[in-house]
Write a protein that binds this DNA or RNA. Structure first.
Lengths: 233, 233
DNA sequence: TGTACATCAGTGAACGCGCGTTCACTGATGTAC
DNA sequence: TGTACATCAGTGAACGCGCGTTCACTGATGTAC
């Protein structure tokens, strides 16, 4: 993750990048000193105070930045995955009409999304490490911010599932709940994905399966038993 | 969580308890000093070295202890839940024979287990906070230990599902994978459960729903479509 | 049963060091008129 | 367009403090004979 020079002051950028580095290298945000951070950023310890009141503020700045850089790309790649399966402009076919086709499409989209998601993780490992670590970390402020991030992420997902017709009609609460479980699972798995390169294919595939299990289970219990029975016949 | 005097030296016990306290109160294991720990334990800073080489060793001792205190109780309460639904000694009824009955039972057991699990969390919040925090925390040693713990937990769950007949027959790999997802989700949610007392009922209920979604989705895609369609008709 | 010795858990003083934070400073950039 | 002033990002020195770790010590418990 990098911080564009145009928006942030040079020093602020450097400090945020250094914090990300230190966090990724087996430290928590409260596990290194201000001076260590400054050293890693190549700055005077004092400069920290020009930009932040304390470590929480630094953490928040990083998270906000992360959020702004991650949120839209993730939506884009879900859309991308959907469009790779159903080319835009093709006539919509409802679940009622052709459950089997929709089921297959849904599966494909979820697999494609998962794959793209993990590629994204691979490209921004430090951001994910910091995010997942501090989600249950020691700072209540950061925990709260990261929960909101997760919630927003789940909300986006629910909206996209709805818009892209990836599931049979579900009541909004169930849909959101399923999206939340999927988000949590994906973020959890992103750590394994980063730390165990040799298991990446397996993780990717299992994540896909879990998502299909969850969504189809939910659709089934949401009253679409017959629909899915038809799809799988 | 307490440490019996008979097994561990007094000082060791005190240090482990103090670490658990500090961790629960918004700190990571690497976020406080040895002297702070000793102060909280009411001991000379030096005493730490009598029992541990460093913080990792302290963490491992706590996790091992946690493991030994948590694992069996969790199995017991799953068994307990199963037996509250199907009294021991009653004749086994296969999924083929009566899918609906089994489905209802399975749902009930999972709800009962979830409820008992969260009661257990409520009774041992500090252990869970430390566990979830350090699962993605800064120490590779502790991360590894906690992953093993999660894996063992999932393994127990899979075994119990099999033994207690809580799901239609599933291939072992899928069963384990589902159990892993459930474990992760439960441990994740345990933090919300601790931190948001007003949402406890909701969390409990949603966890139950997620489990049913997952297990039934998995059963369905594992080839039991007709079985479940019958159960839900 | 008594004695001598070893081990163990805990103490207290001392060390040198890196820490967070403060202060007064500098030079570059932006702004008012 | 020029000048005067304010703001901003970064510096360097200095402070007192808590830190991890070491050493030599103590007294209680366990063990050999």
């Amino acid at each position: 993750m990098s911080y564009p020079k145009s928006v942030l002051a040079e020093g602020k950028r450097l400090l945020m990048a250094a914090a990300l580095d230190l966090t990724a290298n087996t430290r928590s945000l409260d596990g290194f000193s201000l001076r260590e951070l400054a050293r890693n950023a190549g700055l005077n310890p004092n400069t920290f105070y020009r930009h932040f009141k304390g470590f929480d503020e630094l953490g928040l700045a990083i998270i906000e930045d992360m959020m702004s850089q991650i949120r839209q790309p993730l939506r884009d790649l879900r859309r991308e995955a959907a469009e790779s399966v159903v080319p835009p402009g093709s006539p919509p076919i409802s679940w009622q009409e052709n459950p089997r086709l929709n089921f297959v499409r849904s599966w494909q989209v979820s697999n494609a999304t998962v794959e793209l998601f993990f590629k994204f993780v691979e490209a921004n490992p430090k951001a994910f490490i910091l995010g997942v670590r501090e989600l249950h970390g020691s700072s209540p402020v950061l925990r709260k911010a990261l929960r909101k991030l997760m919630k927003d992420f789940a909300h986006d997902m629910a909206e996209d599932i709805e818009t892209l017709g990836l599931l049979p009609k579900l009541d909004p609460a169930s849909l959101l709940s399923v999206s939340e479980v999927i988000s949590r699972e994906l973020f959890q798995l992103s750590m394994d994905y980063i730390e165990e390169p040799e298991r990446r294919d397996e993780i990717c595939q299992q994540a896909g399966t879990s998502i299909v299990n969850l969504t189809m289970g939910s659709a089934m219990l949401g009253g679409h038993v017959k629909l899915l029975a038809d799809a799988l016949r």
